[in-house]
Design a protein around this nucleic acid. Structure first.
Lengths: 138, 138
DNA sequence: CCGAATCCTCATTGATACTG
DNA sequence: CAGTATCAATGAGGATTCGG
């Protein structure tokens, strides 16, 4: 699934990507990135790490209720690969691994902050909309 | 999957949910909502409709390159159910259906705006991080 | 033109067990 | 404690077809 195509010409459009139209190539790349970032677990891990500065594996697991260790590991690896967080292994026994957001991760966290706030503020509105919809369609 | 529990006490904590800790109940609901909103297609459709005011089905399909009609229909239905957009059927032939963001949808679009900007601005950084990671782990 | 319905595939995820 | 490995099942998602 990981296409190692060289990413040529990521930034050579005429400058019309302010808000309306976007260069198709950049748009595709952005959508691709969005696709990876817009993952449920990624967002939640990001949120948790954004709040807690530094956490160990099990602490992280406790703070992300529904997740399995497999998904947690996988999500953490992806985020590490994308430069969102650092993974520090302490050579002690019992083993200890600390996860901490990088500046890049923090910046994404800041960007998502408004989404979290939106979610908190509009929970009931969405729920009402759903009830209306389900009631009407029936 | 949809627990119809009454949403009691959505806002009765001591006021400590500014950034650090969040009420577990609210947190669970927010995470749930995030889980639905943090969908690749949802985000992209939201972005497209945020730019184009009002679009018809096929126009929408053209503006969301990789999507299948099935996923588009499905995504649109979910978003309609969540109150993100309105679906207007014009009784003409050939049929014509217009999709348009509601105020709620627009507000989510505004919240996600910073994420799109982040993605545009940090594409290369993520790509570099990936190359480093893949090179180092090998 | 819009979209529902069917079928089919393979990728994601969870459970479980095992290691350093 | 912090993972890795394996297996099985669910379901997301694509291709196609039909209907209004």
């Amino acid at each position: 699934m990981r296409s190692p195509q060289t990413v040529q010409a990521a930034t050579h459009n005429a400058g019309g990507d302010v808000d309306g139209e976007t260069d198709p190539k950049v748009e595709a790349l952005v959508n691709d990135l969005i696709g990876r970032v817009a993952d449920k677990w990624t967002m939640i891990v990001l949120e948790v790490l954004n709040d807690h500065e530094e956490l160990r594996f099990t602490q992280l697991a406790r703070n992300v209720p529904g997740i399995s260790q497999k998904m947690l590991t996988q999500t953490l690896r992806q985020m590490e690969r994308d430069g969102m967080l650092t993974r520090t292994v302490h050579a002690v026994v019992p083993p200890r691994v600390d996860y901490r957001l990088t500046d890049l991760g923090k910046s994404l966290g800041a960007a998502f902050c408004s989404v979290w706030i939106w979610a908190e503020q509009n929970l009931d509105r969405v729920e009402t909309a759903r009830e209306n919809f389900d009631g009407a369609v029936r």
